[in-house]
Amino acid sequence: MDKGLQSDRNQLNVQELIENNKRKTSIGAKIERVIPWFLLLCAIVSVLTTLGILFTLLRESIGFFSDVSIWDFYTGTEWSPWSGSYGVAPLIGGTLLITLIATIVAVPLGLMSAIFLSEYASDKVRRIIKPVLEVLAGIPTVVYGYFALTFITPMFQGIIPDLGIFNALSGGFVVGIMIIPMVASLSEDAMNSVPNALREGAYGLGATKLEVVFKVVLPAAFSGIVASIVLAISRAIGETMIVTVAAGATPNLTFNPTESIQTMTAFIVQAATGDTSFGSTIYYSLYAVGMTLFVFTLIMNLFAQYISRKFREEY
């Protein structure tokens, strides 16, 4: 058999075979031409979806603002749509409070984890810890919500006795835990991509490990780290389930984290799942609040891009 193959090969003319195949593949050539269009179509789907959402938000918001003036909406300090007050400030305040608490929790913990993983952990330790950390990101947020309500709140009540069942502190704290992997994982990627030659340069001057981390690696990875933090913050702004379950449904313009509050997202859930009638002012207010939320996250994303361009240390 080997011999047969050998002699076959000797008689074969590869160029001839290619010529033969070419004639057969005229359909293949057509596919080659069609494929890019097909791929473009797939890419356009998400662009169109974004535009569609934006269009709906705008149209329904305009409907809302013909009932309630924009001025009252953004300057009013009372949100009780069922009795006709549409001042969005308490919802924005609630969202910012949750975001602030989450940031205070997630940024130090996430950054320190990233520094540990990238600079101190051995390969073996990193290979175990990083996936475990990333599992945190895969836990459904409703589970986090009940974790906040049934575990974190009672725990905090041990320290702060007059903490209510629903409060911004537990909600914000758990949102913070949820976004730790985002900060840690993306920051670690940024630090990992700092070339080793830079570390060696610093070690060669007698720098200690800590000096290398804080005076070479962190500055060089700064833009990536800031981008990760801003992305995590915009995730916290948009977080819904945890705050709906744990932070309450009391629109409350306060910066006291022990009180119950309501975020923009939690209001949307409340109104969308309740018996709000189609076409009512409350129904349209959903879109106005959604629009406001969208603007917030859009600004955060633009800010992230601006920061990472401005502070990029090229290497």
Partner: peptide
């Protein structure tokens, strides 16, 4: 660290900090 302040090093590829 003390050794490395006494014994400096220049590397194969230029590696200035950014």
């Amino acid at each position: 660290e003390y050794l490395r302040t006494k014994v400096g090093m220049v590397f194969q590829k230029p590696n200035p900090f950014p």
